[in-house]
Nucleic acid binder design. Structure first.
Lengths: 147, 147
DNA sequence: ACTTTGTCGATTAACTTAATCAACAATAAT
DNA sequence: ATTATTGTTGATTAAGTTAATCGACAAAGT
């Protein structure tokens, strides 16, 4: 019951992008360094975000990627769905055909309710929320050092 | 973000066991046939359930497995945890040491809230609930045939 | 031209999953 | 006692997935 690194990294990349929005476009290299993600790997995670119109990329010197959808409109369920495919705790939720028991299976109904619960939660969190939480965390850390 | 077949099959096996409780002990062979699970595979899935005291097994003729914990006391979060390990959408939830960002990572906090949301939902569902839902489904199916 | 920066498809090593198999242990029936 | 039945356990394996990495390429600014 794990999220792959694709969803995790893409989320971190988007928060990073939101936090440095005033310096856009941002280099993949910088996101990779700050978020400790392999740049080669990150390149592949960016593609679906561009395709979905969440970010745009510009090549060449002074290029990089830029957040175009506003952070409060980017919800985690969308990010996860884009990077990992449909949220579904079991295969038969998306493809009922893969199991002949689908129509009459009570456990399947419960997995579908679990899917709904997870989706509802993820939909309630935006990149804006994550950015604010991160700012808050960093502020606390400063205070900690101060003490 | 998938449950493995271990959790799915074990859940189905427990519901099957609850539905045939009056005929206990139940043969693994029969559960495997009714639930369309490989018997060889199922053998491995019942071990943790025995270890947790949810079922007991008796060998030899007239043997099989018997539910000893009552169905309304068996919660799905326990079943999933036993078969798949701790519920955690990302590795750093259980092992904060695997990622040095753990202490200062806002996304990690959100994954932990997701874990809590999932756990709460799974804890709210018991094998008894699933058994009743299954009975209800089978009743509806009969009516369907009737029409 | 040349450098910078993103894009894309192919490949790969490591890991996980979902089984399967064989040898074994316990128990009931005869 | 012997035999048939039933669960137990550890080893093995084929297939699939994950998390990268690599190289060749395309676009854009200087």
């Amino acid at each position: 019951m794990k999220l792959s690194t694709r969803g995790q990294y893409a989320t971190r990349a988007l928060v990073d992008l939101a936090m440095h929005r005033d310096e856009a476009p941002i280099l993949l290299k910088d996101i990779a360094r700050r978020q400790q993600i392999s740049q080669r790997y990150l390149e592949h995670l960016i593609t679906p975000l561009v395709a979905a119109g969440i970010i745009v990329s510009t090549r060449g010197p002074k290029g990089g990627i830029t957040l175009v959808k506003s952070p409060e409109e980017i919800r985690l369920d969308e990010v996860i769905q884009l990077l990992e495919g449909a949220i579904a705790p079991v295969e038969c939720i998306n493809n009922p055909g893969t199991c002949i028991r689908s129509r009459s299976c009570a456990t399947r109904d419960v997995w579908d309710e679990l899917r709904q619960t997870m989706t509802d939660f993820l939909r309630s969190v935006t990149i804006q929320d994550l950015m604010e939480r991160q700012r808050e965390k960093e502020k606390s850390t400063e205070v900690m050092y101060y003490i």
